[in-house]
Structures are given as C-alpha cells and as structure tokens.
Amino acid sequence: MNISIDVQERDHQTTITLAGEIDAYTAPKLREAAFPYTEKQHANVVIDLSGVTYMDSTGLGVFVGLFKSLNANEGTLELNGLSDRLKRLFDITGLADIMNINPKAEGGI
C-alpha cells in the first residue's frame, strides 16, 4: 500500500505523476501534495495515472476535491493514462462526463 508522487512545474502547468495504490491510507498524502497547486488562480494541473494499480472511492474523493478547488479558482484539471478499471470508476460515478479524462493509449495506431 504505497504511492509515489512526482510533481513538475513548467510553463504554467503542473504535472503530477502518480504510481502505486490510492486508498484510504495513501489518499491523504496525495491530497496534501496536490492541493496547493489547485489553489492558485488559473492553474493547469495534469495528473498522470498510468502507474496507478488500484484506486478506491477515497482516492476518487481526492480527485473530486482537486476538481472543485480548480473550478473555484478558474483552473483546469486533466487526468491521463487511466487503466480500464480506473476509467470504469470515473464512468460509474458520472465524473467522466464533467472531467477531462483520457484513458491509457492502446497499443498501435
């Protein structure tokens, strides 16, 4: 049950690369690390989830929180590299309709 969080800031964009599991135990770490970047005006936050092997509803809660915070500050949120299982979570919860979500690229063109 661990998570690695890597943050890079470049050209008005914050890229957060995550790997590991997002559950009740790791979600607070993610929230703490990512939240400050959503509180700036017009922030653009891109989160790469291709290394995430598991996420439960607590994890989803963090993304809703980030999304709401960015919306309040007129920023944008983009989630990339979601596995099928993660994509399903965002689909079921209706979040896929209101958030910018890009699943993992399939092999080949």
Partner: peptide
C-alpha cells in the same frame, strides 16, 4: 443508470 455523484454539482 447514469448520474453524477451527490455533492459535486
């Protein structure tokens, strides 16, 4: 059934 989480919008 489609529908957004409660408490978001």
């Amino acid at each position: 059934a489609k529908g957004l989480l409660l408490g978001v919008d």
